[in-house]
């Protein structure tokens, strides 16, 4: 079952510049509109509100007037799992193979018609990127007319999450196939709905395996496991780039970029004094 997640395949990923992100919410709405996400009367309980892309507000914890705010958009992190072998926290626990890891794309899929709603994957995901359909999705009379046929609306009782707009990948693949080069999807042909919508261009999306792609150039992923923690693969060699809860070994494909140290520090947990030792360590020195 263990397959190679490193070569000859796409590894789609994202880097979000938190200094550019303004928390405007375009990515959230673009995602909802692209992926037929429903809405209900009261969405103020954020713990039962389906937002594949959720924007968290971070504060530096200081009091007035030294307070600072940053926004952190959180799509599904499309974890590669420990050692980047494809055993994402959610995929490895799903009892019915309703969520799967695409070794050819690095995308964690969700099969709505197979999921039977045990919610184990939600428990296993530390990012709360997975959402349960507690209610039947209902559109006000007439509004179902704007639903896109590219993404099927989900039924009550199942789990859903960000798919990196997988249908856009399929469209790009079809296009590449049509143009006779089916193995090479162009960077601009496959972009997620949140990426294209972001008015600040804070989101960059592409193939982390492809050095020509912007994500690769920003992230500079380390192909070797972190010598301090062999579960961690693909650590960024850019000192300003981090991943959420990187130390857990989930190996997300969503990276974050910030010049602000306090923001980077909020990406993970550190024991006293650890941050100062760790903050300047950025992957191995060798190149791959």
């Amino acid at each position: 079952m263990t397959q190679d997640n490193h070569n000859n395949a796409y590894k789609f990923g994202m880097v979000i510049d938190l200094d550019k992100c303004t928390g405007c919410g375009s990515c959230m709405v673009s995602c909802m509109s692209e992926n037929n996400v429903p809405f209900k009367e009261d969405e103020s309980n954020k713990r039962d509100s389906i937002t594949w892309m959720r924007v968290y507000k971070l504060t530096n914890g200081k009091s007035f007037p030294d307070t600072e705010i940053a926004y952190l958009p959180r799509p599904c992190q499309h974890c590669g799992g420990e050692g980047d072998h494809g055993h994402s926290p959610c995929v490895s626990v799903c009892p019915a193979t309703a969520t799967d890891y695409g070794y050819d794309t690095g995308i964690v899929s969700q099969i709505y018609t197979r999921c039977f709603g045990c919610r184990y994957c939600m428990g296993a995901c530390p990012y709360h990127a997975r959402y349960f359909n507690w209610w039947d999705p209902k559109w006000p009379e007439g509004m179902e007319k704007y639903l896109s046929p590219d993404v099927s609306p989900r039924m009550r009782g199942i789990v859903e999450k960000c798919s990196f707009c997988y249908h856009r990948y399929q469209a790009a693949r079809d296009k590449a196939y049509y143009h006779g080069d089916k193995d090479h999807i162009k960077e601009e042909d496959y972009q997620t709905a949140c990426t294209t919508a972001c008015p600040s261009n804070a989101i960059t999306f592409g193939d982390l395996n492809n050095p020509a792609h912007k994500v690769h150039q920003i992230v500079k992923p380390d192909p070797h496991p972190d010598p301090r923690n062999h579960h961690v693969v693909g650590k960024s060699r850019n000192p300003k780039v981090f991943r959420l809860l990187e130390r857990l070994g989930t190996n997300p494909k969503v990276y974050y970029l910030s010049e602000r140290e306090w923001v980077r520090k909020q990406g993970d947990h550190y024991l006293e004094g650890e941050w100062d030792k760790i903050k300047n360590h950025h992957g191995t020195t060798s190149h791959g």
């Binding site: 405007c24 919410g25 375009s26 959230m28 709405v29 673009s30 509109s33 509004m143 704007y146 294209t196 919508a197 972001c198 008015p199 600040s200 261009n201």
Partner: peptide
């Protein structure tokens, strides 16, 4: 130039 705000994107509503 390609960007959009959330209200515009939600325009169909």
């Amino acid at each position: 130039d390609g960007g959009a705000c959330l209200h515009g994107i939600a325009g169909l509503q």
